[in-house]
C-alpha cells in the first residue's frame, strides 16, 4: 500500500513538473529588470495571480519559451538577456471559486535590453482592471527614466542577416 501511494505521488509530481509546460525562468546573472506588482481583488471568493512568461525571439520572429516567473511578491528582480529580443508576457489569472470559473488574459511586449540600461515594470490589478507600464533608465541613474511603448509581437520585424 505504501509503495502504491509512493508510486502515485511520484507519478503526480512527474505530471505536474514535466507535463504542465510551465517551467521556472532561469534568470540571466545581471538583474536588469525589476517588476513591481500590486494585485488585489475586492471579491471575497476571487483570487488573482500574476505571472511573467519570457520568450526569446529569434531573427525570424519565432518564439522560444524560456520560462515563467510567478509575480507573487511585490518586487521581483530578474535578468533578461542583453542585446537579444525577448517577449515579455504578463499573465493575469482570475479564479472565481463560487462561480467555478477561471479566466486568463495577457499583455505582451517585445523588449531588447541594452547594455547599461535598467528596466522597471509596474504591474497592477484591481477590480477587474489591469495595467502594465514599462520604464527604462540608464545604469546608475536614479531618475525614473522614460516610459517604453508596448510593442506587440505583430510589430516584430525579421532581422536582416
Amino acid at each position: 500500500m505504501r509503495q502504491l501511494t509512493r508510486g502515485v505521488t511520484v507519478a503526480a509530481l512527474i505530471l505536474l513538473g514535466g507535463c504542465s509546460g510551465i517551467s521556472a525562468y532561469r534568470s540571466a546573472p545581471d538583474h536588469n529588470l525589476t517588476v513591481h506588482t500590486q494585485a488585489h481583488t475586492a471579491a471575497f471568493f476571487t483570487r488573482v495571480s500574476t505571472a511573467l512568461d519570457i520568450y526569446s525571439v529569434d531573427a525570424d520572429c519565432k518564439l522560444r519559451y524560456q520560462g515563467t516567473l510567478q509575480l507573487n511578491r511585490s518586487t521581483v528582480a530578474l535578468g533578461v538577456p542583453v542585446r537579444q529580443r525577448s517577449l515579455l508576457v504578463f499573465r493575469f489569472d482570475r479564479a472565481a471559486y463560487l462561480a467555478g470559473t477561471s479566466a486568463e488574459i495577457t499583455d505582451a511586449t517585445l523588449l531588447t535590453p541594452k547594455f547599461r540600461e535598467r528596466y522597471t515594470a509596474d504591474v497592477r490589478y484591481a477590480h477587474g482592471i489591469y495595467d502594465v507600464h514599462l520604464f527604462a533608465r540608464r545604469w546608475g541613474n536614479r531618475a525614473p527614466g522614460w516610459r517604453l511603448p508596448f510593442l506587440p509581437l505583430k510589430d516584430c520585424r525579421p532581422l536582416k542577416r
Binding site: 493575469f92 482570475r94 470559473t101 479566466a103 488574459i105 499583455d107 497592477r124 477587474g128 482592471i129 489591469y130 495595467d131
Partner: peptide, 17 residues
C-alpha cells in the same frame, strides 16, 4: 474600463471575463 476611459480617470485594461 470604458467608463473610466471616457472620464479620463483610469487607462487600465479590462480582464473581459
Amino acid at each position: 474600463a470604458v467608463t473610466d476611459w471616457a472620464r479620463g480617470s483610469d487607462f487600465g485594461c479590462p480582464v473581459l471575463a
